[in-house]
Amino acid sequence: MDSPKLHLACPHCGATNRLPAARIDDAPVCGRCSQPLLAGQPLELGDADFDAVVQASAQPLLVDFWAPWCGPCNAMAPAFKQAAKALQGQVLLVKVNSDDNPQLSARFGIRSIPTLVRIEQGRETARQSGALPAQAIVALATR
């Protein structure tokens, strides 16, 4: 059976790339410009592709449940990106829009946003609600 396909926008040229979820840990590069697709950027996932990435990745994941209307979520976004750069190759940072992905939000019991959930080998290993600075995000991700 084929691995579900992720659609990743290249942070360098904007091209959309289809990537089998099973290759998420393979340092994928853009088909157009050959630059790294993840390049220390958070990966946006949702109800349709979240489980495939969790199952395929050997790296721990740190998931940011957020919403576009949330002030603290927007205030934390630059720190989350900064942490993604610092943790590149060690922890995969993921953003899940809780408004657009109600099944994931319900499954993880998200009651407030932003909420960060650390997942390792398919199991939740840590959780923190509220906006955090980059160094606290890194500390949570590397517990």
Score class of each variant (00 low, 15 high):
69 W>N: 12
41 Q>N: 08
23 R>E: 08
41 Q>L: 01
38 L>K: 11
8 L>P: 10
28 P>R: 14
18 R>F: 09
12 H>G: 02
20 P>L: 06
36 P>T: 02
61 L>N: 07
41 Q>H: 10
77 A>H: 01
59 Q>P: 05
28 P>C: 13
78 P>M: 15
38 L>Q: 03
77 A>D: 13
28 P>S: 04
18 R>D: 11
59 Q>K: 11
19 L>T: 15
49 D>K: 12
63 V>M: 05
57 S>R: 04
18 R>T: 03
55 Q>N: 04
21 A>N: 08
64 D>S: 03
21 A>Q: 09
19 L>C: 13
14 G>S: 04
19 L>M: 07
52 A>E: 06
47 D>Q: 14
70 C>G: 06
12 H>N: 01
59 Q>V: 11
38 L>V: 06
27 A>V: 15
53 V>I: 08
63 V>K: 00
6 L>E: 11
56 A>E: 04
36 P>K: 15
47 D>Y: 03
65 F>I: 04
22 A>G: 13
9 A>Q: 13
56 A>S: 08
66 W>P: 12
78 P>L: 10
31 G>H: 06
61 L>H: 13
63 V>N: 00
41 Q>T: 07
63 V>L: 03
45 L>Q: 02
37 L>D: 01
55 Q>T: 09
76 M>L: 09
46 G>A: 07
72 P>A: 02
70 C>K: 07
56 A>N: 12
71 G>Q: 15
70 C>N: 08
78 P>K: 03
23 R>I: 11
79 A>L: 12
76 M>Y: 06
61 L>D: 10
37 L>S: 02
27 A>H: 11
38 L>R: 09
47 D>P: 13
23 R>G: 01
31 G>T: 05
60 P>I: 09
24 I>W: 06
26 D>S: 07
52 A>Y: 14
73 C>P: 06
65 F>W: 03
11 P>K: 10
19 L>I: 09
76 M>E: 15
74 N>Q: 13
63 V>C: 01
7 H>G: 14
8 L>G: 05
44 E>H: 03
23 R>L: 15
15 A>W: 02
10 C>L: 07
11 P>W: 04
16 T>M: 07
65 F>E: 07
74 N>F: 02
36 P>N: 02
4 P>L: 14
